[in-house]
Design a binder for these strands. Structure first.
Ligand SMILES: [Mn+2]
Ligand SMILES: [Mn+2]
Ligand SMILES: [Mn+2]
Ligand SMILES: [Mn+2]
Lengths: 247, 247
DNA sequence: TATCGAATTTAGATTCATCTAAAAATAAAA
DNA sequence: TTTTATTTTTAGATGAATCTAAATTCGATA
């Protein structure tokens, strides 16, 4: 296949006779729906400071088997998307990282669109965005970005990469790691599962909500927190580990 | 597979012991990307008054081989999406027609979105919509419809089916079939290929343009037409067969 | 009606993504 | 340092969608 020989993105084709005419073409490598999901998963698993992602971790996230993961890693390795050493683990190449950031960009732009323009609730968007993120047109992503006013964060507080792959790094800490009397504003969630977001809705917690730690219950590490208008409630550690507060 | 036994959309499950508790569940049959493209193609080929669509016609549209089409027709037949008789041709069942209309609905809504909101030109939208039409969420289609203000026609003048599958039938005739001195307004195109639309752009013809037939050249059936501000031009029969004028 | 040619279907192979089960490598424990 | 357990890879099979080539059917023509 072409892909196996043309690893880079820019190729020069020189006229055989005159050696003068040079055609410089930019080759856009395309990836299957499945490949994209692997790339995104490897990116997310290595984002948490992990150097080499292991096979089983990928298999778990993608709800597939380790053997399938191995097959795909060999394939992505041949495409120069990942650095893969048998039994040692896998990491994205700079190429692969660029691809991952584009997928994440599209995912988060679509989520923003769904919430901002189509009035979806923040717990309804992830699944749809999992499909929309694979629409390949870069013009579409860029126009959508423009239409939304170049948003920097998605509805869950996650940063949206720019066309060139840069994103704002928000200063934040986990609610679980704050001390008594500390206070701040909710700027993100660590888990976008509908059930968790629905729970937050029910508790009246959303991005922008001000929270103050009133007490910590040592028995199960649950937190007593204060919201606006002297409203008080207790949340489990599980929950507090999934809420980001402005630093 | 479940699909082969559960042909309808609503199923009752009765408790074996008490015979009293009845679970009524609505089963949403899903179709692969590929199946959807076949369904849409069969719909479009039968839309022109054709009763039984033949295998080769489908193969040509989908740029595939007749043998592949046969395989898929057996599959869609088992799913009750088409009526298929070997060697005789194929037509959509009422079920299949509903599915087709939903795909076309999504295609045209997305095209409208791209032009109206993202400032795409009308020649840039078809290819992207070919991908977007397969995003399955019906909530998405309905919210998009609402966001766009329930448009009745897409950027090429084609009618957009409602959620229930109804669409406005526009009174129109082909420019090629008009007589000298007849006049009207462009309300649609019969071909959405970029090259054709780009040609129309170049000639200053778009939806809403007023056109009057000035003369017909018998030699090659080309047409001399008049636009606003006494602008005159000659178009080939090929072109005149792809422009719809208000009746 | 018999024959020919086009359209269509069948047969068999290929590629991609997946699986299970078995083998191999690595890491942890004795 | 063996032994054991875990992780990972290989081997081999399956199902979906495709292909080419051969066989079959249909419909038109002789
Ligand atoms: Mn998401
Ligand atoms: Mn995905
Ligand atoms: Mn179109
Ligand atoms: Mn399509």
């Amino acid at each position: 296949m072409l892909n196996e020989w043309l690893r880079g993105e820019v190729v020069n084709i020189r006229c055989l006779f005159t050696q003068s005419l040079i055609l410089t073409i930019k080759i856009k490598m395309s990836h299957s729906y499945t490949e994209e999901n692997y790339i995104k998963t490897i990116y997310k698993l290595s984002a948490n400071g992990v150097q080499d992602v292991n096979t089983n971790a990928i298999a778990e996230v993608l709800e597939t088997k380790a053997a399938s993961v191995t097959d795909m890693l060999r394939k992505l390795s041949a495409k120069d998307i990942v650095n893969y050493v048998k039994y040692k683990g896998v990491s994205l190449t700079p190429q692969g990282e660029r691809v991952a950031l584009q997928i994440i960009r599209r995912h988060r732009l679509w989520e923003t669109f769904l919430v901002e323009k189509l009035k979806f609730n923040w717990d309804e968007v992830h699944e749809v965005a999992e499909e929309l993120e694979h629409i390949s047109s870069t013009l579409l992503a860029n126009r959508l970005d423009e239409f939304l006013g170049y948003p920097k964060f998605d509805p869950h507080g996650d940063p949206i990469p720019s066309e060139s792959g840069e994103m704002k790094h928000k200063k934040q800490r986990l609610l679980a790691e704050m001390a008594i009397d500390d206070a701040g504003v909710v700027v993100g969630v660590n888990d976008s599962q509908p059930l968790f977001l629905q729970y937050l809705d029910k508790m009246g917690i959303s991005l922008g909500t001000s929270i103050k730690i009133i007490d910590k219950i040592p028995y199960d590490n649950s937190l007593e927190i204060g919201l606006a208008q002297d409203r008080c409630l207790v949340i489990s550690q599980e929950v507090s580990k999934n809420i980001f507060i402005s630093a």
